[in-house]
Write a protein that binds this DNA or RNA. Structure first.
Length: 443
DNA sequence: TCTGGGGTCCTAGGACCC
DNA sequence: TCTGGGGTCCTAGGACCC
């Protein structure tokens, strides 16, 4: 059996742990730049605010109902997530961290110890709530997709007390008949519309479609696997996460700006900032990258502009994989220069690191000094590596961005001003758990 | 006025190689 | 009149997830 544990309204729940006055009220958390609603309390859902709604469309509605609005606070959510995952790992040896607020549990063979699965799931929920303050739901099923189904229903029907187990044919059928096809893991807007057009509305009907139809209309083999899993035929296993974190195959960092930018130097300020952050994440998971992409976007909602709104440039690093911020910056600047067109107004930029692998393979070294080229010598490499170790240590100890590339610092003329690329965050809560100055004071 | 960010997987088509 | 086949790599695009 698998378990799927999922935090309820995760970001909102994280905020409520430190602001209990938000209990019982409509609360929403916004995406970067205060753009969209990305987490809603039950009360906010009841007002009819959809997931992903642009904030400006629901602002008045929230005001009328004394709703509370928060900018996203990822240091807080990331840290709370780490605490939740640590609790789970204490109960179950095999945990696959699936997202910031979700994890699959490997429960195979655990039933004979410590009572029934339901009792175990109850204990896990209680423990996570007691130790972190985060309410969760647990879905139990013999297959990942069915554990997801169970979790969905456990969230939807409070009378289930946060737990649903689908371990018999009868329970599977009953659950699938109760679940809309659009709520199945892997069915998004497009596929839901296609199913609807065929008169297929429940997960049970979806489980009954033919292989040919699934392959043709639901994304090929992906859709067919999904259908098989609903039927009870497992197509994917559990991939336990080491040390409670998820190692990624690509790492990106991108942001919408707070204002339109046209000047190369402003864009470069943004791109160099994002690249520094991405390289930090890369080193944190002990990898190097050998493919670098830079992209810049114009306003996709501006009907006067012809698509494409985003232009990107990708480079396979000629010197092989690296995790050196400074080396990556050299390449990124060239890529940005290729993309940037004077006069255009850009709203967003980003970088992507691909082709990740652990250090020690495929490093292309130069026979000569690196002065003229980006290709490093061995001695240069060792020093660069030491520099990154020191950089990361300083930023860990004194806060992100304490030491950063000069390009990421706004020019002296703008001293005291926030960088021009920074987005809005007008409702940010303190970093209660990750900044000493922000510690909650009681009493 | 205001519309997110970070991921995954698959497919199709073209270039190139033998 | 005849005009290979299979493999790999790369890119772009499209769907999905949270």
């Amino acid at each position: 059996m698998y378990g799927l544990v999922d935090g309820n309204n995760f970001y909102v729940s994280c905020e409520r742990v430190f602001q209990p006055r938000l209990e019982g009220r409509p609360v929403v958390v916004l995406s970067n730049n205060d753009g969209n609603v990305v987490s809603r309390s039950a009360e906010a859902k009841q007002l009819g605010i959809p997931m992903g709604a642009p904030f400006f469309e629901v602002r008045d509605l929230l005001r009328r109902h004394q709703g509370h609005v928060l900018s996203s606070n990822y240091p807080l959510y990331g840290d709370m997530s780490r605490r939740v995952m640590a609790r789970l790992a204490d109960h179950v040896p095999g945990v696959e961290v699936y997202s910031i607020d979700e994890a699959f549990l490997d429960l195979h063979g655990l039933t004979t110890f410590c009572g029934t699965l339901d009792a175990r799931a109850h204990r896990i929920r209680q423990d996570v709530l007691a130790c972190t303050g985060i309410p969760t739901c647990v879905g139990l099923g013999p297959i990942k997709t069915l554990a997801k189904v169970a979790n969905r229903l456990a969230k939807k029907y409070p009378e289930l007390q946060g737990i649903l187990r689908l371990d018999t044919e009868a329970r599977r059928e009953r659950a699938l008949r109760a679940l809309p096809a659009a709520d199945v893991w892997g069915i998004g807007r497009q596929y839901a519309a296609k199913l609807q057009a065929q008169g297929l509305t429940t997960a049970w009907q979806l489980a009954g479609i033919s292989e040919a139809w699934a392959r043709q209309h639901l994304g090929g083999v992906v859709g067919w696997r999904l259908v098989q899993e609903l039927r009870g035929q497992p197509c994917q296993g559990l991939h336990p996460s080491e040390d409670g974190t998820l190692a990624r195959q690509s790492i990106s960092c991108s942001r919408s700006f707070g204002q339109r930018l046209t000047a190369f130097d402003d864009l470069w300020g943004a791109v160099s900032t994002y690249l520094s952050r991405a390289a930090e994440k890369l080193r944190a998971q002990h990898d190097q990258a050998h493919i670098l992409t830079v992209f810049i976007s114009q306003d996709r909602y501006d009907t006067r502009l012809p698509p494409p709104y985003t232009r990107s440039a990708t480079l396979t690093l000629p010197a092989g994989p690296t995790a050196d911020t400074l080396q990556l910056l050299t390449y990124a600047r060239h890529l940005l220069a290729k993309l940037h067109e004077p006069g255009r107004r850009y709203v967003k930029a980003g970088v992507v690191l691909d082709g990740l692998e652990p250090p020690g393979r495929g490093q292309q070294l130069s026979l000569f000094a690196p002065a003229a080229s980006a290709v490093p010598t061995l001695a240069h490499n060792a020093r660069a590596q030491q520099l990154m170790v020191s950089l990361d240590a300083l930023n860990r100890q004194f806060g992100r961005g304490t030491v950063r590339p000069a390009a990421s610092v706004p020019p002296p003329a703008a001293a005291g001003q926030p960088a021009p690329w920074l987005g809005r965050a007008e409702h940010r809560s303190p970093a209660y758990t990750t900044r000493l100055e922000d510690l909650l004071v009681v009493g």
